[in-house]
Amino acid sequence: MSRAVLSIGSNLGDRLAHLRSVLDGFGDRVLAVSAVYSTPPWGGVAQDDFLNAVVLADDPAFGCADWLCRGQELEQAAGRVRDVRWGARTLDVDVVWCAELRDGEPVACRSADPKLVLPHPRAHCRAFVLVPWLDVAPDAVLEVDGAPHPVAELLDRLDPAERAGVRRTELSMTGAAS
């Protein structure tokens, strides 16, 4: 069995519908979903703001690569085009963290495969990942440079402007505005 933290975002088309398609696409695997946040684009490419959220999911039959494969299938279904790195997109599904359950405890997976680096190598620098992650797992820990760090501490280390750019919306992943 594996558990995954998936960071999802959209800044093209019906952004909320694209995010909701991830919940539909993962179905019963979804354990929890964060609030929806509006965030400025990251990476220096001029574009519209994103809607972002984090999904916590698990599946007894999935390995870490399966989360990536399914996420990419959902991106393709949403018409994702990969023309510009960090450019605008209909849907982005990133596997931020993945763990296998051993004796009932999650043991974080590591991968240096260029297709799936785990834990995500830039997650600790991105408030748009850390803020919603804390919604679904307030005690989350992320390994950075081989050492475990509470996600809350990683968020506190970010520039205040980076944190302030992550704005909770009234949008809901499960229906009308909350």
Rank of each mutant, 00 (worst) to 15 (best):
D139G: 08
E73V: 01
R110I: 09
P150V: 03
A137W: 14
V131A: 07
F50I: 05
V33M: 12
G13T: 03
S178D: 09
L101D: 13
V55A: 15
T90S: 08
H149F: 04
P150W: 12
C109E: 15
V93F: 00
V144S: 11
F128E: 03
L130H: 02
G63T: 09
A88D: 07
V55W: 14
R122M: 05
D49T: 14
S2L: 11
S34T: 05
S111V: 04
R29Y: 11
L51M: 12
A88G: 06
F62V: 04
R157P: 09
F128S: 06
F26S: 02
L116Q: 01
R89I: 00
V107G: 03
G25T: 03
R126F: 08
A78D: 05
G87H: 09
D135L: 11
G79E: 01
V136I: 14
R85S: 10
L118E: 07
L23C: 04
K115C: 08
A57R: 08
V22E: 05
D49F: 12
A123Y: 02
F128P: 01
G165M: 08
C64M: 14
D139S: 07
R29W: 12
L19T: 13
A147I: 07
A46P: 14
R89Q: 00
L142R: 03
A137I: 04
R157L: 13
A61T: 15
